[in-house]
């Protein structure tokens, strides 16, 4: 892909190296920045919201609230379903003439019935909400797995010292979950940078215009639709670099900081 990104292309035929022209073209393309921004918006929306909701549900299920087994199963269903199936179901629900708008109209909330996938301001929002729904199950299981391995004795000792439930959660549970949360963030960011194709392709095809196009889909559009192999490859290299830099910074730098802090 690196070689492709450094070549000029005439349709599908390489025309020799053209230095960094594909990268410069890309940097002059406003749609490229729009797609990058969409990726950022998805990450900053999905990661914290899923984390907070999953942590809350994981704690509730860990506390064995009534029906906790059913909740665990229900939350995990979207995770085991293929992305294409989930995306197709959501497309049907969110369609302008789909059941969501039908329900809103039926209960008198007509003003809330929108073109969820067809309006530029809403298509990305709809995808974000869909991703949140899909990803909660995965994060939930991850956090739940860690919660079950925490030594109960720590909580018992805290109770003897008079700690409240809130104090126990923020002083024991969360710190012990921090490594798992970090893994969750890394996996989520990688997923939200490079594995969104199914959702975008099925739900909005990146549209209207480029309003819900993410970098991964931008690469697909350039290589397979516009047949701009050089530009698409350059975008692929940039995607790889951005993801790598993030992982390096987040994993190695924070780990080092923790070590230096003696944690």
């Amino acid at each position: 892909m690196l070689i492709f990104s450094l070549q000029g292309w005439s349709y599908l035929r390489p025309q020799g190296f053209n230095q960094l022209k594909n990268y410069l073209d890309l940097l002059n393309d406003p749609h490229f920045y729009a797609t990058m921004l969409n990726n950022v918006l998805i990450i900053v929306s999905v990661v914290p919201v899923v984390a907070v909701i999953s942590l809350a549900f994981a704690q509730a299920i860990f506390s064995r609230i009534p029906g906790y087994k059913i909740y665990t199963f229900l939350f995990f269903i979207p995770v085991i379903l293929p992305d294409v199936v989930v995306a197709r179901v959501l497309t049907e629900i969110l369609n302008k003439v789909g059941p969501l708008n039908a329900v809103l109209n039926a209960i008198g909330l007509n003003f809330l019935a929108k073109d969820w996938l067809g309006a530029p301001g809403l298509s990305l929002f709809s995808i974000i909400v869909s991703l949140i729904w899909k990803n909660i199950g995965f994060a939930l299981i991850l956090f739940l797995a860690r919660l079950t391995t925490i030594d109960i004795g720590i909580y018992e000792a805290a109770e003897i010292d008079g700690a409240t439930s809130t104090q126990k959660y923020f002083s024991i549970t969360l710190p012990l979950l921090s490594a798992t949360i970090k893994i969750y963030i890394v996996l989520q960011v990688i997923g939200l940078m490079a594995f969104l194709f199914n959702y975008i392709h099925v739900m909005t095809a990146g549209g209207p215009g480029y309003s819900s196009t993410v970098l991964e889909y931008f690469i697909y559009l350039n290589i397979f639709r516009l047949q701009e192999i050089g530009r698409g490859s350059a975008a692929g290299i940039i995607l790889m670099l951005v993801t790598t830099v993030f992982i390096y910074y987040f994993v190695f730098r924070t780990t080092r900081a923790e070590r230096e802090a003696g944690r």
Binding site: G118, P120, G206, G207, P208, G209, L221, R225
Partner: peptide, 17 residues
Amino acid sequence: EYSSVTEKFCNSMILGQ
């Protein structure tokens, strides 16, 4: 070349976006 861009944007044009 023409088709790719019309597919991407004529939808937006019709909808007044």
